[in-house]
Design a protein around this nucleic acid. Sequence first.
DNA 1: AAGATTTGACCTAA
DNA 2: TTAGGTCAAATCTT
Length: 379
Amino acid sequence: RTRHPRAATSGVLPPWTIPPHQGSSFLPHACIWPIASHHIYDPSTYLPQAAPCPCLAAPESRSLVVDGSGARASEVARAGECPSSEMSMAPYEKVMDDLAKGQQFATQLQGLLRDSPKAGHIMDQILHTFSRAIHAAKAAAAASASESEVTDGASSGGKRKSAAGGGPRKACRTRTQDSSVVTKNMKSLEDGQTWRKYGQKEIQNSKHSKAYFRCTHKYDQQCMARRQAQRCDDDPDTFRVTYIGVHTCRDPAAAVAPHAPHLTGTAAGCHLISFAPAAAHGTTTSTTTTNTNLVDDAAATGSGLQLPGLKLEGGDLEEVLSSRTPGSSALYGAAAAAAWPDQGDVTSTLQYGGAGAFGGGLFDGYPYLEDLLSYDLDH
DNA sequence: AAGATTTGACCTAA
DNA sequence: TTAGGTCAAATCTT
């Protein structure tokens, strides 16, 4: 690809980086995205992050009040059976089957070791490892599937030019209609997440350009979360920020351990996971649609279903303008299982050296999850 | 040197 | 046809 020589930019900030006036809360440099401190991962809130298979949204497959009987393992196995999930490759099925079996056995063993906190802790690690492996396998399968699609698309012909030294673009881009989308107005772009800017466009009939961000971990962890930010025309101090997709990354620097986890389990090291709001009702009967409605309602009404003691990161959050969250049942489950991170808790115990996507980072930018979480913990 | 930003080119949904 | 979204080489920052 040939490019025109880049215009000299030294000393000249682009419009996006220029504060509208003195005293603005705008960051002095668009490249600065502060990382929330004290982000610690709690394995008890961990769930596989891959996009949930549609079949998991079925009510019968969501009765996941895990009680040590291997419900999660059965969930995983169910995902492997799904005919619509592009998972018909034999090697994948075998891997998933083995992983599911291993997880199931570990879960059974966990039930036998409840009296030993230390054993429970080890079991947590084992289950966590299985979860990660399952997630990785799913991600690998998805990547493989999309790669073949791209190959097919390239062979169909087109006017794509090859980049210098590289092949055709591999992007299989679609507009943001399949992902969860949340738009909100913010006084500051700081949200505790690590974003990398990848584009900026002038928008017609808008005074200010729109900036495009992706998760820093797009490539190393296949996190597809994106964010778009544009300064409001009528209020230059306010940004209209659109969050697209969910964070599936586990950034050690961007995730926070729950301060006071409200778990359904009681035995030490034996944290149980349930889907909201059935954790307190025994069995889960709500469907994805129900949960979505709940979230939408909460977002639409701006209802403050906030649990006291749960800190909402980004106190500058003003208004949730819209939300659409199809097929995010696993997300809601995680929201129910995790408590809001308390950044002030510097004494939290670091576990696994990793960071939980559900341990704080995921919620950043997804205010509806805050509402849902509060709802679940309140009921 | 590595990672982040800038920005023109490219791509696609509307 | 075009506005908006993304890519990726060039450039900048640390």
